[in-house]
Write a protein that binds this DNA or RNA. Structure first.
Lengths: 128, 128
DNA sequence: GAGAAAATTGACTTATACGTAAAAGTCAAT
DNA sequence: ATTGACTTTTACGTATAAGTCAATTTTCTC
């Protein structure tokens, strides 16, 4: 066992470029092992990449994603830092809830756009 | 009546800079009237800005926002264009639904992060 | 109608998140 | 030993979405 993935396997699975995964490594988000110079991605790396991409899709910056990841690896030991972190979590939560509202509203708007299209299509269709 | 807003009123309300609003005008997203050179924003402009910012928050590009806005002002007259538009609407919808899923998952994860923080705080607290 | 405050413009700069090109290394199979 | 497919590193390039700055107007306020 002890399965690992090559970089291209993962690029194919997730639809990103090798450059992107190397960039994430440079930024300290993932730390694949090496055999010689070649990167070996473990399942844990793969899961991490999933998380990174999810964060990316909802508009987190690399820095923000890095912070979230850090908590798992290395939960801070100082009270002050913990409190700061929880503060940030609160903010993120509010941020995400706002985004969710934005999405709901925009989905509703897309319905309107579609309606408008259909109406217009019907208008045109009658004339032909 | 016939209320209008100055640019700074709106920057204050929405927390953006004047440069940003001018940028949106340059990009053709809004079209405030002028008295001399000074921009006069009507309620309709204000609502448009709200829409733009909402689109921005969920990660639409300026070009995408412009397209959505255009449909209201000027619904396309050609069938081909209408169908293309509806295609795009479908894609956006899928995109937004994916984002909504991402948000739900990330919110759940933030709960975990918070848990971890609280646990850690408790551990530290006992020692003091 | 003078001076302060606000608004405009254009040119330049910035940050993020990669893209791209070049040159060399890796490795398995022939 | 060579081929071919893939990978690595380094370095520079690019698009998006504004921000910054400085030099003018323009508009309020008294």
């Amino acid at each position: 066992m002890d399965k690992f993935y090559t970089i291209t396997e993962l690029t194919r699975e997730f639809g990103v470029s090798t450059r992107t995964l190397r960039f994430y490594e440079d930024e300290g988000l993932i730390n694949p092992e090496r055999r010689g110079r070649t990167r070996l991605f473990r399942p844990a790396d793969r899961r991490l990449i999933q998380e990174i991409l999810r964060g990316r899709r909802i508009g987190f910056t690399i820095a923000e994603i890095r912070e979230i990841i850090k908590v798992y690896k290395d939960p801070p030991g100082e009270m002050g830092q913990l409190e700061m972190l929880m503060q940030k979590v609160s903010e993120k939560r509010e941020d995400l809830r706002q985004k969710r509202r934005d999405i709901e509203e925009t989905l509703a708007e897309l319905d309107n756009v579609e309606e408008a299209c259909l109406t217009r299509l019907a208008e045109i269709g009658v004339g032909t």
